[in-house]
C-alpha cells in the first residue's frame, strides 16, 4: 500500500501507469483525472504525513500495489444489496458512498443484512463537502473506470489479492463508554430520534440532551461484543424535539455516551501500533475537527478525513485501517 497527497498531474500519471487506486479530493480535482482502475469521492480534508490540512487542489491517493486484479463498479441505491456479488474469491472490496444520499441511508440501515457482507473485508468511507458548503454543496463519488460522477449510489473497487495473502480490517476508536453515564436505548432505527429511553425512562431526547448539558462532541457508544461502535451527534433541535445523528441508532442496542479520550493526536500516538504507511486508513472529519488534527499528525497513519467510515458497517468518529499480510499471520479479517 502506498499513501500520498499528490497533485492532479501526478495522480493522473499513476492512473495511466495502470495503478489500482482509491482517491479523495475536491470535485474539480477528481473530474480532471483520466479513466482507469480507480474510485474516488469528494473530501478536501486530509491527514497527511505532515499533518491535517484542507486542500482543494491536490488529491489523496492510496495505491493498492499488491492487487493482482481489480474491477470498478457503480451500484445504484436499489442494487446496493448486491455489493458482495462481484467481488473476487480472494480479496477485498473498497466502497465510497455520497454523504446524505439515499445510498448512505440504505447502507447504514440495512448493510449488515446483505448476504455475505462479513465474508470478506469491506472498507471505505462517506464522501462530503467543504464545511463552508454544508447544506449547499453535494457530496459526490466517481467511478474512475468510466469517469462518471454520482450524487447517489456507491462506487466499489473489488481487488484480488495474491495467493496466500489476506486483508486485515480493523478500527481504531479512542472512545469508550462512560460506564457511569446512563444507558440509552431507542425504539426505532434511524438517523434521527425524537424519543429515547434513558435508564428505562422515556424522554424527549433533544430536551434531555439540552437540559443535561450533554457534550455532543462525544459520541454515543454501543458495545458490539467488545468492539466499540460510535454514533455521533449531528444536531440537537430542542424546539422541535429532534436529534440528528451521522449514523443510525439501532433499536434495542444499548448506548452510553463516551468518555472524553483527551487530546486526540496525543492519545492516538500513545495507543496505536503498526506501520500506517503500509495500510489504507481513513479517519473521521469529526476527529479532525474536535481532535484538532489540522497541523497535527496521527503518526504514520494518513488518509482522507471522511464523513462516515466503513468497516463492514457505517461508523462515526473512528479510524478504519486495512492491511494485507501473509495468510498464516492473519488474526483478523
Amino acid at each position: 500500500m502506498k499513501n500520498a497527497l499528490m497533485s492532479v498531474p501526478e495522480a493522473a500519471g499513476r492512473i495511466r501507469a495502470g495503478a489500482v487506486l482509491m482517491i479523495a479530493g475536491s470535485e474539480q480535482a477528481l473530474k480532471a483525472l483520466p479513466a482507469g482502475s480507480w474510485i474516488g469521492g469528494t473530501s478536501v480534508y486530509f491527514v497527511a504525513a505532515d499533518g491535517g490540512r484542507m486542500d482543494k487542489d491536490n488529491v489523496f491517493v492510496t495505491e493498492l500495489d499488491m492487487a493482482r486484479d481489480s474491477r470498478c463498479q457503480y451500484l445504484s441505491t436499489g442494487d446496493l444489496h448486491n455489493l458482495t456479488k462481484d467481488r473476487f474469491d480472494s480479496g477485498l472490496s473498497l466502497i465510497i458512498l455520497p454523504g446524505m444520499s439515499a445510498a448512505h441511508q440504505e447502507f447504514a440501515l440495512h448493510g449488515a443484512s446483505y448476504r455475505g457482507l462479513f465474508d470478506a473485508p469491506l472498507m471505505g468511507w462517506i464522501s462530503g463537502v467543504h464545511l463552508d458548503d454544508l447544506g449547499t454543496g453535494v457530496p459526490k463519488v466517481i467511478d474512475g473506470g468510466t469517469g462518471r460522477m454520482y450524487e447517489d449510489g456507491a462506487v466499489l473497487l473489488h481487488v484480488r489479492l495474491p495467493a496466500g495473502q489476506v486483508a486485515d480490517l480493523d478500527i481504531v476508536n479512542l472512545f469508550v463508554q462512560d460506564r457511569s453515564a446512563p444507558r440509552i436505548t431507542f425504539a426505532q432505527d434511524g438517523f434521527s430520534a425524537h424519543h429515547a429511553f434513558v435508564d428505562g425512562q422515556k424522554v424527549d431526547f433533544a430536551d434531555w440532551v439540552a437540559r443535561n448539558g450533554i457534550d455532543t462532541q462525544l459520541p454515543l457508544v454501543a458495545d458490539y461484543a467488545g468492539a466499540m461502535i460510535n454514533v455521533s451527534f449531528q444536531s440537537v433541535d430542542a424546539e422541535n424535539g429532534r436529534v440528528d445523528f451521522y449514523a443510525p441508532v439501532i433499536a434495542g442496542m444499548e448506548y452510553r455516551q463516551a468518555k472524553s479520550p483527551g487530546a486526540y493526536a496525543d492519545v492516538f500516538a500513545a495507543s496505536v501500533t503498526g506501520d500506517g504507511t503500509a495500510e489504507i486508513s481513513c479517519n473521521c472529519i469529526l476527529n479532525y475537527l474536535y481532535g484538532k488534527l489540522e497541523g497535527h499528525t496521527t503518526g504514520s497513519f494518513t488518509g482522507p478525513a471522511t464523513f462516515g467510515e466503513i468497516a463492514y458497517i457505517l461508523m462515526n468518529q473512528t479510524m478504519v485501517r486495512l492491511s494485507v499480510r501473509a495468510e498464516q499471520a492473519s488474526q483478523v479479517a
Binding site: A112, S113, F118, P121, L169, D170, I171, D223, Y224, A225, G226, A227, I229, I250, A251, G252, M253, A311, Y312, I313, Q331, V332, A333
Partner: peptide, 24 residues
Amino acid sequence: DKELKGASLATRILVTHLRREASV
C-alpha cells in the same frame, strides 16, 4: 451478551447483528 475478546471485527459485528435480530 458475552464479549468476544480477541475475535475479529467481522465476527463481533456479525454476532451483535444476529443477537439483535433474534431479540427482535
